[in-house]
Write a protein that binds this DNA or RNA. Sequence first.
DNA 1: TCTGGGGTCCTAGGACCC
DNA 2: TCTGGGGTCCTAGGACCC
Length: 419
Amino acid sequence: MFALIDCNNFYASCQRVFRPDLEHKPIVVLSNNDGCVIARSNEAKALGIPMGAVAYQYEKLFEEKGVHVFSANFPLYGDMSQRVMSILSAYSPEIEIYSIDEAFLKLSGFELYNLQTYGEEMQKRVTKCTGIPISVGIAPTKSLSKVANKIAKKFPDKTKSVYIIDSEEKRIKALKWLKVEDVWGIGRQHSKRLQNIGIRTAYDFTQLDDKWVKKNLAIVGLRLKQDLQGIPTLNLEEIQAKKSIATTRSFDQNYTELKQLEERVSTFAVSCAEKLRNQNSCCNSLIVFIHTNPHRNDLPQYSRNIVLKLPFPTNSSIEISRFAIEALSKIFKEGYHYKKAGVIVQDFIDEDKVQFNIFENSDERHKQLMKSIDKINTAFGQQKIRLASQDLKRVWKMKQERLSPFYTTKLSDIITIKV
DNA sequence: TCTGGGGTCCTAGGACCC
DNA sequence: TCTGGGGTCCTAGGACCC
């Protein structure tokens, strides 16, 4: 059996842990730049605030209904996630951390366990130790555990937030209940196509002809169909090094000057290089993109990206930044109002497997330099040491008007309890 | 005025090889 | 009139996830 554990309204719940006065009150969390809603408490969902709602369009509603609004605080969420995962990992030797708020457990050899009780134990323990409410779905395959989890989340009282699909009747009942567009792995395009041929529920989907599924939803769709039929097709996935790493941001305002973009791109490149060194990889190519604000009809639009093959693999901030700025110069065009840019690195090779090139190599001296920079930045705070091509006066700032304290990751923000 | 960020996998088609 | 067969690798684009 597989268990899928999913934190309820994760980001909103993280904020609530340190603000118990917000229990039963509507909470939303906004994306970077306070752009749109990326998490909602149940109370906020009940007010009809959709996922992705554009913040400024809902400002009035937030005020009228007393919605508590938070800017995204990713260090907090990441830290809370680690706490939840570390508790969950005690419940099975086989765990796949699927996302910041979800994990699969493989429950092999648990035949003598009462899985309902086991799930409830997990649920209680995580909530008690972290304050984060979770739902648990258990079933013979991964995709069915996703379905079970949805049921647990939808009917928390009836299920005690734990639902198990352990019989053919339950499987069919669950699949008939689930709308096809809510199936894990069926997105907007596929569900549109499925609805066109009269497929309404997950159950309808499992009744389709294999050939049709393969042709229209490719091999991924076919695997999913089997998995939903109760034939274990998807297995736990090993944690592996990332295959691409990106740092991209929208700006708080439009930029028109190459100089301004160079500073941003350099900073994004440095961030990518740091992440690369963290997983001991070097990259062989990078992508830089820039574009104007697609929502502005009154301004001319421009959007381009460029792939740059590097002459040698590297994870030096200095080199990656230099190449990224070089790439930027090839796509930058005068006369546009730029709203977003990003750097993506890819084609990785292990740091210690880099082959030397006769003509050109990454500067050996950077290795030691980067090590020192990383050490200092870890000890004294992010970006304490920067490249001269980055913004040294911190002109650039993300819009984060309603940022909560960093309760668990910043010493000065730790809460004080009055006795 | 204001609209997020970071990933994965698969497929078709083109370029190239012998 | 008639113009082979069997591969690999790479890339862009499209789908999906949170």
